[in-house]
């Protein structure tokens, strides 16, 4: 029972990181209208950016977050120009294949330059553990939860209250209408894509702190989890995607209570496939959606 409760705590804190990845993913998909395979690689680059900052400049979480954000923002620009910019009118499989190519490119270059092996992430948060009754909550988990909540709130404020945010929403909903209203759709799509990538980069930093390791190939399964979470949330809805992330975090951690940690990913994907069978539109049942 104790073990189960603590796995729930672990599930929530890990789910919070997945939620951040999923929020980023749904922003990207919403604004470009195209599915991407590069998300995992963006997450990985975000993790490595902060890794090198911690190594060479110092153990400062805020600095790490900024570094991850900037590095993945730049990567987001690269991805945008390679995979999306010229393909908005083309059949969607073309940009899909392009993102596969870009993801192969980034991952393999990373393997060459960062090395193929796991690296230990520096321990930048004290190893303190608080006990509340039978529950054990580590300082790291608290820091992660706070970071995710703050970032999600900033994003929500940005999307709902700023001019750029409103433009982003307009482009997500209907590119043609946005264009007719005089919005620069391409520029907005690029910025939206970069914001989504930036959030993913920070999530990469958090997940590598959580596991205390990072690796050039870590993007593969993380990207899939981001995708799974946002499918659960109906793909473009940031709030429901966040919920999806939490759900996957919980499922994974509860799943390994009945087996071993090496089956972690099997639970995540098994869950995704189950959801696709039972409720393909995700949590959010959308009204008036074009059903074609």
């Amino acid at each position: 029972m104790e073990y189960l409760l603590n796995q729930i705590v672990n599930g929530i804190s890990q789910g919070a990181i997945y939620a951040l990845m999923a929020i980023g993913y749904s922003v990207v998909v919403g604004v470009t209208g195209l599915i991407t395979f590069t998300h995992g690689e963006v997450i990985m680059i975000g993790a490595f950016a902060s890794f090198y900052i911690f190594q060479y400049i110092g153990n400062n979480l805020i600095l790490g977050i900024i570094a991850s954000f900037i590095a993945s923002w730049i990567l987001g620009m690269f991805i945008y120009y390679v995979c999306y910019d010229r393909f908005f009118e083309a059949p969607s499989h073309i940009s899909l294949i392009c993102t596969i190519g870009a993801s192969m490119l980034i991952r393999n270059l990373a393997q060459i330059y960062f090395g193929p092996n796991q690296k230990p992430m520096l321990n930048i948060i004290d190893n303190k553990v608080y006990r509340i009754g039978v529950l054990q909550v580590s300082l790291m988990q608290i820091v992660i939860l706070i970071t995710v909540v703050v970032l999600a709130s900033i994003l929500a404020f940005f999307i709902n209250n700023t001019r750029w945010g409103i433009m982003l929403r307009a482009v997500s909903q209907d590119k043609k209408a946005a264009y007719l209203m005089g919005i620069n759709v391409r520029k907005t799509a690029m910025i939206g894509n970069c914001i989504g990538c930036g959030l993913a980069g920070i999530a990469g930093l958090l997940i590598s702190i959580y596991y205390q390791t990072l690796q050039a190939t870590m993007g593969g399964s993380l990207g899939m989890k981001a995708f799974s979470s946002s499918v659960l949330g109906g793909l473009t809805d940031t709030r429901y995607s966040a919920l999806g992330g939490l759900a996957i975090g919980l499922i994974e951690n509860l799943g390994i209570t009945i087996s071993t940690a090496s089956f972690r990913d099997i639970f995540a994907f098994g869950f995704l496939i189950t959801v696709l069978i039972i409720r393909p539109e995700g949590f959010a049942s959308r009204k008036g959606a074009k059903s074609q």
Partner: peptide, 13 residues
């Protein structure tokens, strides 16, 4: 596109 990602996950499983 869903199928694409499901096959990726399947391959890993």
């Amino acid at each position: 596109k869903y199928l694409a990602l499901v096959t990726l996950g399947f391959s890993e499983i």
